[in-house]
Write a protein that binds this DNA or RNA. Sequence first.
DNA 1: ACGAGATCCTGTCAGC
DNA 2: TGCTGACAGGATCTCG
Length: 278
Amino acid sequence: MPELPEVETIVRGLEKKLGGAIISTVRELRDGMVEGDRERFFAALPGSQIREARRRGKLVLLSLVNPRAKTQDETLVFHLRMSGALLVREKDALPDAHTRVIFGLEDGRQLFFDDVRTFGICRLLNEKEKETWPFWKNLGPEPLEISQKDFDALFARAKRPVKSLLLDQTVIAGIGNIYADESLFRAAIHPLSPGCALTKPRLKKLREAVKEVLAEAIEQCGSSIRNYRDANGNAGAFQTRFRVYGRAGRPCARCGATLEGMRLNGRSTVFCPRCQPL
DNA sequence: ACGAGATCCTGTCAGC
DNA sequence: TGCTGACAGGATCTCG
């Protein structure tokens, strides 16, 4: 499930491989993957050149220019959700059962948008839609860039559990279930602690833990559980560093107490009852 | 208004 | 062996 570090890894791969490439064809193999103005999507993409690959939260952004059309510049956006993958394939590569959208490139290569569970979406985004697409408009700040002061303000008046806040993309962008649990463990904060109950020193610890976990995971090219792969089809390595995620019932690496599992907002949540007291 | 729960989807795995 | 149900969970929708 691509979260910020996985998306960052994918984007770095795409930037290397796709910078300057021109899209010639688009084929949606399964309905519902293309969101927003579908008509514009299929009309505007052929002939568009990919200028750069970027990331915002968990979104993959490919900035496009179309020298032939007189339309404004667009951004091709992907949200990979649970099981999406973006794979650069050679000319004669064939789609498999989970390939949902195929972007043919002028040089013959293909960009496959694969997604087993089909929760992922892609869409075009122009300046106007940046004001009207709620997910984009309401997306919170980047955790690797936010100042401590702004970070503190996200939690100061919020009564909700700190983990709910970390997972809320309108509060802070890019953190998912894995890195929320791992960050809270490193900061020694109970997932149910209300945001407003966190003191300044604990918020400082939390921001540092979030940044540290994300940076380490990016260094390891993300975590591969189930089917995550980057643009080259490679797996990440951070899953070997998990201290709590997926480890309920096993001993805490720090203190030896049995890690506890619970459900929060329908998500599996693992924490150490001794290291992360409420 | 806020928050909890259901929903979308498919593959995997445990248990009978 | 083969079936069934639980589970994985990001974002959105519905309901209390």
